[in-house]
Simulated scan of single mutants.
Amino acid sequence: MATQKLGVRRIGSATWSGAVGRMSAPFRRPSRRRRQEELTQDLLRQLAGVAEEIRHANLIQLQRLIVGQVDRAMADPALMAAMSTLDDLPDFKRRQLLFVNREYATILLAYRIGSVSWGELLGHLRVLCRNSVFADYWERTAEHRRSLPGESIEAKVGEAVDVIMEELAEGPDEWWVVGPSPEG
């Protein structure tokens, strides 16, 4: 008899547990597997963010190396001639062109690493394009830009500068709005 009561209780408690389990099913926590998948996805997102930060750090370090080389070249006419691809220029003009190239590269780097938006990039370029030395640099290096892959960031920015330069050549009163749309 005790066995029967014990058996009934087991059946009863199993039945009761099953009923409670079915009632609480919609309120259960995510399964362990689902939680692991969520944690894995979160970890992958964080890892991708770290990879992007490392990429940006590498771009910044590369820019530092280039700036150091340009500075050394600007101080030594022999190195300056070796660095510049533009021929028949007096040293002062070569220095100017190397310097505006460095300024342009710095603005482009800021966009590449996400420090400035497309609209902010265009604003910086509008100011730079008003400079006559930059205008001369841009004209002299048109051939250089033709070798860029059309889908590259530098080609896209180069096309924007071309539009800005064309519109500035028309002499607009409101130079700060020339060029492509900031939303582009």
Score class of each variant (00 low, 15 high):
His144Glu: 15
His144Gly: 01
His144Met: 11
His144Gln: 08
Arg145Gln: 11
Arg145Asp: 09
Arg145Met: 15
Arg146Pro: 14
Arg146Cys: 15
Ser147Gln: 02
Ser147Asp: 12
Ser147Cys: 13
Ser147Val: 13
Leu148Pro: 08
Leu148Phe: 13
Leu148Ala: 04
Leu148Val: 06
Leu148Arg: 11
Pro149Trp: 02
Pro149Cys: 04
Pro149Val: 13
Pro149Tyr: 02
Pro149Asp: 14
Pro149Gln: 05
Pro149Glu: 15
Gly150Ser: 12
Gly150Trp: 00
Glu151Tyr: 03
Glu151Thr: 03
Ser152Lys: 06
Ser152Arg: 08
Ile153Ala: 11
Ile153Asp: 15
Glu154Tyr: 07
Glu154Gly: 08
Glu154Ser: 05
Glu154Phe: 09
Glu154Asn: 12
Glu154Cys: 04
Ala155Lys: 06
Ala155Arg: 05
Ala155Cys: 00
Ala155Ile: 10
Lys156Asp: 14
Lys156Pro: 02
Lys156His: 04
Val157Thr: 00
Val157Trp: 12
Val157Ser: 07
Val157Cys: 07
Val157Arg: 00
Val157Tyr: 14
Gly158Glu: 00
Gly158Ser: 04
Gly158Trp: 05
Glu159Trp: 01
Glu159His: 10
Glu159Tyr: 06
Glu159Thr: 11
Ala160Gln: 12
Val161Trp: 07
Val161His: 04
Val161Lys: 07
Val161Arg: 01
Asp162Thr: 07
Asp162Ser: 09
Val163Ser: 06
Ile164Gln: 10
Ile164Pro: 10
Ile164Phe: 06
Met165Cys: 11
Met165Asn: 03
Met165Tyr: 02
Met165Thr: 13
Glu166Ala: 14
Glu166Phe: 03
Glu166Cys: 06
Glu166Asp: 11
Glu167Asp: 06
Glu167Arg: 11
Glu167Val: 05
Glu167Asn: 02
Leu168Arg: 06
Leu168Phe: 09
Leu168Lys: 02
Leu168His: 08
Leu168Asp: 14
Ala169Cys: 12
Ala169Phe: 06
Ala169Asp: 15
Ala169Lys: 02
Ala169Gln: 12
Ala169Arg: 10
Glu170Leu: 14
Glu170Pro: 08
Gly171Met: 05
Gly171His: 08
Gly171Ser: 10
Gly171Val: 11
Gly171Ile: 10
Gly171Asn: 05
Pro172Cys: 08
Pro172Arg: 14
Asp173Ala: 13
Asp173Pro: 02
Asp173Val: 07
Asp173His: 08
Asp173Gln: 09
Glu174Ala: 08
Glu174His: 05
Glu174Arg: 10
Glu174Trp: 01
Glu174Pro: 05
Trp175Met: 05
Trp175Gly: 06
Trp175Gln: 08
Trp175His: 07
Trp175Asp: 13
Trp175Phe: 09
Trp176Thr: 12
Trp176Val: 01
Trp176Phe: 05
Trp176Gln: 11
Trp176Asn: 10
Trp176Gly: 09
Trp176His: 06
Val177Arg: 13
Val177Ser: 11
Val177Gln: 09
Val178Gln: 01
Val178Pro: 10
Val178Leu: 07
Val178Met: 09
Val178Asp: 11
Gly179Trp: 02
Gly179Ile: 01
Pro180Met: 01
Pro180Cys: 00
Ser181Tyr: 00
Ser181Asn: 10
Ser181Arg: 13
Ser181His: 02
Ser181Ile: 01
Ser181Gln: 03
Ser181Val: 00
Pro182Val: 01
Pro182Arg: 00
Pro182Ile: 03
